[in-house]
Design a protein around this nucleic acid. Sequence first.
DNA 1: CCAAAAGTGTTATGTCTACACCCATGA
DNA 2: TCATGGGTGTAGACATAACACTTTTGG
Lengths: 254, 254
Amino acid sequence: MGTKTRGGRAPEGYDPSKFPAFAVTVDVVILTMADSRLHLLLVRRGVAPFKGMWAIPGGFKRPTETLGEAAKRELAQETGVDSAAMLTQFGAYGDPGRDPRMNVVTVAYLAVLRDVGAVVAGSDAADAALVPVSEALDGTIELAFDHAKIVRDAVERVRGDLDLTGIAAAFVGPTFTLAELRTVFEAVWGVQLDGANFRRSVVTEEGWVIPTGRRARPGAPGGKPAELFRAGRMWKYSSPIRRSQPNERRKGNS
Amino acid sequence: MGTKTRGGRAPEGYDPSKFPAFAVTVDVVILTMADSRLHLLLVRRGVAPFKGMWAIPGGFKRPTETLGEAAKRELAQETGVDSAAMLTQFGAYGDPGRDPRMNVVTVAYLAVLRDVGAVVAGSDAADAALVPVSEALDGTIELAFDHAKIVRDAVERVRGDLDLTGIAAAFVGPTFTLAELRTVFEAVWGVQLDGANFRRSVVTEEGWVIPTGRRARPGAPGGKPAELFRAGRMWKYSSPIRRSQPNERRKGNS
DNA sequence: CCAAAAGTGTTATGTCTACACCCATGA
DNA sequence: TCATGGGTGTAGACATAACACTTTTGG
């Protein structure tokens, strides 16, 4: 950050000790899988503005905590989940007038959880709900503030990160079948994936999934018991232009 | 954003009208190519704290402008570049104590330009400099505040975005040779790329570069004149797990 | 003519897709 | 034993990396 710089040239009109005051909030987009679809945790606002409208959970940052700690605190308050849940900062929003009361800049985090369903069911159903993201994206559910845009950005982030980071594993349990993991990819990307090829991609690629010896029990209709895996380091860097590591360093060609 | 929500349950200890006040600043990491290496524009701080130390340009956000507008304004102030330069928000930083004077949250932007060299040379050389990013990353140049981390994050962002967005084109002129473009990839990724294969990747992939009929004049040592291209829409979504669009929708396999 | 850089051809190797087929289970 | 999903095999299509070769310039 830092006040205006550049020596004495071009004074900025800002005295470092007289800066415009902002409220800083942290909002958390909480995503989870339910019913094979991507869902979003929303809370109903109890106070003006936008009273009674759905919004993503959030609150003021405290001067004594980091942004990440604030996000973790909000997540724990809303869901009771205290763990090292996957929390990713993905954007800051500060348009003038986005909050009619005052100047607010919000820093948005993405949290990926499993089993939020139980959490929501356990809390007061009137003011917290798990809704399909599609309904938030297409406007079926109207959101307070600029939260519609924030949710759009969050979903875009998940789509892009899914195959580059281990974020997919956060949607499923500590151990999971490849069918479960595949469902995450299918829901987030909105496509159908071939189970056979998906398995090969994911088990071939180093560091994605680690087989536990165990197998899951099949569901009602039977079927071969699926292998159970746990998450690996999951890291992958794909790219249209391949990096080459030739024997001799080459420049250009010829 | 939004005050604490969730009906009347669990009052937060925060009155919406009595929020902690923060200064919000916008910092811009300005990257450019020089001497076939990735460079970074730094300014020397003229005021405490960190007086005399190098820092990335930045300044207070005004309540009447968006974060993006603030970044654009800072960029223009520092470089004179007013154009629709590639400006990407990539992070927010708000650790307590990151600014010893007050509570500051900064939103960081990445700007990619060409020809910053001329701009820097034109200004007072004592308080602005173009330095290789490697020197900022390895600590050869010590930066004020948490700017070292901000620069690291910016470079990481460019590395990831290079082949997914059109950001590479922002490093070169409105028209460019493929050798110039390749130099960007090589500098940012720190690799050597085969010129022949690079050309194929980039001209085959739809929407990356568009041939102008013209050719560049070869340099001193001669060589065939290179074709001049301009940037296309440049978009690409690569992924380790392929999306398939089968004739019939399939689920799983069998 | 020579060196240097741009651009094209070529080939072995690897990866991906689609789908056939086998396996293990519940009912 | 039948339906259902899990898991393996595989052939053709396609993409990639490495490098030989041709083209076009400056000196």
